[in-house]
Write a protein that binds this DNA or RNA. Structure first.
Lengths: 213, 213
DNA sequence: CGTGGCTGACTGACTGTTCAGTCTATGAGC
DNA sequence: GCTCATAGACTGAACAGTCAGTCAGCCACG
């Protein structure tokens, strides 16, 4: 009994290892250029074992995408808990998406977005998943605003409408930053996003002389 | 001599055919899932001929991306010429990016963006190209605003700053529309973008009861 | 005849997946 | 405590299919 439980734990660890490795590789090389042999090597196992766990290459990669995005949102959720101030919370979200992180394994996460979009565009199943993921992201933003509205930090605003516009803007800005557009450096993206929020929600905001990174 | 010129013309036509076919296929299947055999079949030629013209699969696909994006911008440029009213021009641009077109071959263009981004993220050469392309796009928007400002249609505004924010917002919105997010239908994306422009540039705007498509 | 666009047939490399079987640990029966 | 059957994680080797790219030569035209 205990043995069976142990085995299950080991198996779960293996799975997670593989998912993490796969996610990292997708971010580096891209979805279709990721080989199961690469994943296998990275976790120190044979290609056959990867198939043993996931049955097919496609399920591995698709699950890896899900896995990675979900942990991204989980991280965002956690960071949000550190303050109750709406402005600080929004700043956190903007920094999370628009400013490169040297720490964590998050830096390569942008590569995953591009592949997630490309996959979603062509595969209905992935598309459905992505819609849910994005809804969760918007809800997070909407909740921040809604809470602030309830606490009187801002006046009455349409939190949901704001969330749709704000997340779209963040997506667009983070693309430019991720692709190293010299015209849209992280600092500038950060400023644009916060100015938009300030204008939409009616609060004052000035860029602080904070050291990025 | 005339023969040589004729041959060159034919060759150019062939090239363009192939580039167009390749672009369409990339939009459908994705960059790495596009086979030279598919391109060859679509133009009614042998795979060998494709290699004959482009030497390698990668150059074909990369050039196809460039080709397609450039013709997109050319189309936008042309459409812009049909009015001088800034609001109408902006409406045109928003519709072009956020509202699905049944006509043209433009409908699948979104798929190309996703792949362009994914490629740019990992290949410096493509990255450089994309930056130029995007700069051109932003310049187009900035010029629209700048011209309107010169003609007194709007007051003094930072056209370049607006262009950066506006194009980012359009990118983000078009992603949602392209991926069929039920929360962000074309109508809504259109409204959000125009409201943002109105608020940023200081003009009045009300959604007209226009039939989308 | 010769040039150049063009092709069919081929190949060599790559890679997802299968499969037969190994190794280890567990747990039952004695 | 020892043996042995069983299960399940794991693997090496082979298989089968796919494709980019090569090459020798065809054919139409000037």
């Amino acid at each position: 009994m205990a043995a069976k439980a142990d085995a299950a734990v080991v198996a779960d660890q293996r799975r997670d290892q593989m998912l993490e490795a796969a996610a990292a590789l997708i971010a580096e090389r891209g979805f279709t250029d990721t080989r199961i042999a690469d994943v296998a090597r990275r976790v120190g196992a044979s290609p056959a074992l990867v198939i043993y766990y996931f049955g097919t290459k496609d399920t591995l990669l698709t699950e890896a995408l899900r896995y990675s995005e979900q942990s991204f949102y989980a991280a965002a959720d956690e960071m949000l808990a550190s303050t109750t101030s709406m402005v600080e919370r929004l700043e956190t979200l903007v920094r999370l998406t628009c400013v490169p992180q040297t720490q964590d394994e998050v830096q390569g996460a942008w590569g995953l977005w591009f592949d997630l979009w490309a996959q979603a565009f062509r595969h209905p199943e992935v598309k459905k998943d992505r819609v849910e993921l994005d809804q969760r992201w918007r809800s997070m933003v909407a909740r921040v605003v809604h809470d602030a509205s309830r606490d009187g930090e801002v006046g009455k605003v349409d939190a949901e409408e704001f969330a749709v516009a704000f997340t779209a803007l963040l997506d667009g800005l983070s693309i430019q930053v991720a692709l190293d557009d010299p015209v849209v450096d992280p600092e500038r993206a950060y400023r644009i996003a916060m100015r938009f929020a300030a204008a939409s929600l009616g609060f004052d905001w000035k860029p602080s002389r904070r050291r990025a990174r």
